[in-house]
Nucleic acid binder design. Structure first.
Length: 195
DNA sequence: ACCGGGATGTTCT
DNA sequence: GAACATCCCGGTG
């Protein structure tokens, strides 16, 4: 079983979509990994979201229709990737934070020379973009159409009945750092930190 | 194991 | 000029 997720899957609010994205499979050309850690960003009302300060050239994809990939550049050397959710204009999105490597591990390793352990090939939002080759060119890609080779599929593994829920990583105090909007698969291989 | 700091450049004030 | 949804390395315990 290997079914591409339909547009309707992404149509809900990021907070609803985030937990059901767990255990789905992110595919980028010849490489793929199972999504085991995500964070919800709740649009214009969320001080932790890029959308909080309105639509700009950088975050325009977030304000577009659901089911597209929002990729942004940060810290001078890393990319992070999000799945756009909700109705057009709501700018809610789910940050992909970690994958369990599934396919094309040799390609991933070649892109991530500094990764010593297989479990660390995709164990962070910047790392997974590097391993999957996601960058500027992938911003706006339509996941439903596998645009630019990027899509998300359901291979039959269901989301966890009880995902672990924590606060989000890397936000400054007062910027929504207290909201419990990070979801992960307990005990999964490749999480961004020890559980 | 934990912690501190440097890398590096785009975006927004 | 500061902040940045990060990562990696080298210190210490």
């Amino acid at each position: 079983m290997r079914k591409r997720l339909p547009r309707a899957f992404y149509g809900g609010d990021a907070l609803d979509v985030a937990p059901v994205l767990l255990n789905k499979v992110l595919v980028a050309g010849p490489v793929a990994g199972r999504i085991v850690e995500v964070e919800a960003y709740e649009g214009a009302l969320d001080p932790g979201s890029h959308a909080f300060r309105g639509c700009t050239a950088r975050n325009a994809t977030m304000f577009g229709p659901p089911g597209h990939l929002y990729v942004y550049f940060t810290y001078g050397m890393h990319f992070c990737s999000n799945v756009v959710c909700g109705d057009e204009g709501t700018a809610t999105a789910v940050l992909l934070r970690a994958l369990t490597p599934l396919r094309g591990l040799d390609v991933m390793q070649a892109r991530r020379v500094k990764s010593r352990r297989e479990a660390d090939l995709c164990s962070g939002p910047g790392r997974l973009c590097q391993a999957l080759g996601l960058g500027r060119d992938h911003d706006g890609a339509d996941l439903v159409r596998a645009d630019r080779g990027v899509t998300i599929v359901d291979d039959g593994v269901t989301p966890p009945d009880e995902p672990r829920v924590t606060t989000r990583i890397g936000l400054r105090p007062g910027q929504g750092d207290d909201r419990p909007w990070r979801f992960l698969v307990p005990g999964a291989v490749g999480l961004s930190r020890r559980t």
